[in-house]
Design a protein around this nucleic acid. Structure first.
Lengths: 349, 349
DNA sequence: CTGTTAGCGCTTTCAT
DNA sequence: ATGAAAGCGCTAACAG
């Protein structure tokens, strides 16, 4: 007796009847005001008000129109993680901005890694999708493809059926890797997770192809390019894999990394967060940066500026906006996002 | 010729026809698998696969069922701001968790302060709403009420038609204010914005009733209670209003506050972020904490622990979850969220 | 400017 | 276990 109180929904035809007009006139009052005379319009609205009609039912409208005016954003794993990642949040903010501008709704679709993922995606009442890189599991991609709706994926290699928006991670990694590894004999890398296992570990000669996440893979490839170019075989380069993108996590992995090989004299990290962890470890161990240890980040977040970190600048916010605009039908303007190498004081000249 | 390529949607009846069964059998295959023999089920799914049917159309389903299985979250102003506020993000994460658990979608509804707000809310295909405090403008509340759908608002005083979930801000503010102002002669407050103007300024004897945001109002009232209880008239208590919830902003307002009256020896801040700003200013001005200046925060975020800050502990994440559960129909378990006073080292014994 | 007709794609009865 | 009929609430498409 408490929850099923649906007081027999008020519909457009109730309003029309009360106002003494046809249903269409009532409909036009809401959807095409210009087709209705001001007088009629007022009469209809008055009737609506008097019986508490709040406006056309969204589902009915969507069904009839064939469009929901809503954009779906597929976010990585436990939403928890997504919201804990400042980069993801920025990305989302960019999307939200575009949606608000165009009167589009914004539906969040968490990917948990379970079977429901497929279902949750097919069940989403959205016109198109934006996929955040780390959420791009095969299951998710397949489910989205099956819906035949427009989909944009942020970053990564071309994928059949998806528009990819993002920077060229490999090229950028090569660029910053080259700076990071300048006059280094023992370069190393601090990496994002390779896949959904999210375990942290340290290894040498990690094959980028083993990374399930495209971002991770592309950046590893770029760092490898950089190492090779300065004549260091990739097999000698240690990679510390961090399970999450946080400075705390990076601290422990970086400490372990340096313990595993004290000769390491340069570490390229996949985010400023991670780089910050390295800087803390360096401070604790009295390793001079960049003299004893060169460090680079990625993202040019406020942290980077504070820490004088050499980093890659890309506005996740802008990329979010670009992804949303593309998903909503804009013709893509550029072939990918822009990026800049920002050289500060944590690398050797 | 590029966007209108709708290849004539595949519907359930196409699938049924191809499988040689009635539409209902096909429908049951998706919605009530147990009512269909495994053989039939497989035949239907096979047919679906062969013509690329991805599953029932969400809008049609919602229309028929009378429910969208989606929760709407109304977030404050420019989404930008919402996502920049770690507390809001935590709250959102809590909501997302509950939604994911129950197979509900989650639609974000930004409030921009413009007229579209009303429209965006009525047009949202959601079953119920959760409103983040700072988004609770009269327009928004009216629009939500008009939809007659269930709505939960986080924090603040009772509002007709809404369930309020949250802690008793006034009581908590009085509790922490009392600790903050212990043996203080010149207490002060660092506050959230009073309304959507979002300007920063400093004033004495601010009337809590002037605060449009319920959180701000309730906390000011609590601090006032605390001040009075120790015999200090509220009119003498300076309030520094910060335009945004960030340490940087707090730094500048706190510096100004102390400059305006160097005798200030205690500041109660409405968030740990703000308190952090005060601590920085204290450090810069060589003011010993808590001896020369007592400081309190609010939220017990990681910052608070790091800074040994006396604060109020309330899990925004839990509250998000509680709001979502309530909005989704759970009977409320408690009359409000729990909170604890966490006394650390920034206040005088 | 207003009205008529038709039906979006699905699922809830209520049969069989 | 399967099916036939009816219609959720709305708007496109066409009259008038």
């Amino acid at each position: 007796m408490s929850s099923g109180v649906r007081p027999k929904r008020v519909t457009l035809s109730d309003v029309a009847e009360l106002a003494g007009v046809s249903v269409m006139t009532a409909s036009y009052t809401y959807g095409r005001p210009e087709r209705v005379s001001p007088a009629m319009r007022e009469r209809v609205l008055e009737a609506a008000r008097s019986i508490g009609y709040a406006g056309p039912d969204p589902s009915a409208r969507s069904l009839r129109r064939g469009s929901t005016l809503t954009l779906g954003v597929v976010l990585g794993e436990q939403l928890t993680y997504a919201f804990d990642d400042p980069q993801a949040v920025q990305f989302l903010a960019g999307i939200a901005e575009v949606c608000a501008e165009r009167g589009f709704g914004l539906t969040i679709l968490p990917v948990t890694g379970t079977d429901d993922d497929r279902e949750r995606i097919t069940a989403a009442a959205v016109d198109s999708f934006v996929v955040w890189t780390t959420a791009a599991t095969p299951t998710v991609l397949a489910a989205i493809r099956a819906t035949k709706r427009r989909a944009v994926i942020h970053s990564g290699p071309p994928i059949e059926g998806f528009t990819v928006v993002g920077i060229d991670d490999r090229a950028a990694a090569k660029a910053i890797g080259t700076v990071a590894f300048t006059s280094s004999r023992r370069p190393a890398v601090l990496s994002f997770p390779l896949d959904h296992n999210r375990s942290s570990f340290i290894a040498s000669g990690v094959d980028p192809a083993d990374a399930a996440f495209p971002v991770t893979r592309d950046r590893l490839e770029g760092y490898r390019d950089a190492a090779r170019e300065i004549g260091i075989p990739w097999e000698q380069v240690r990679v510390g894999v961090c399970s999450v993108n946080s400075a705390t996590e990076a601290e422990s992995v970086a400490a372990e990394l340096l313990a595993s090989d004290p000769a390491i004299d340069a570490i390229a990290a996949m985010s400023d967060q991670l780089a910050l962890g390295i800087l803390r470890v360096a401070a604790n161990h009295e390793r001079a940066v960049p003299a004893d240890l060169a460090v680079t980040g990625w993202d040019d977040s406020p942290i980077a500026a504070e820490s004088k970190l050499t980093t890659i600048s890309q506005s996740l916010r802008d990329q979010g906006a670009l992804c949303a605009a593309t998903a909503l039908g804009d013709e893509r303007e550029s072939d990918g996002g822009e990026w800049q190498l920002v050289v500060r004081e944590t690398t050797r000249a």
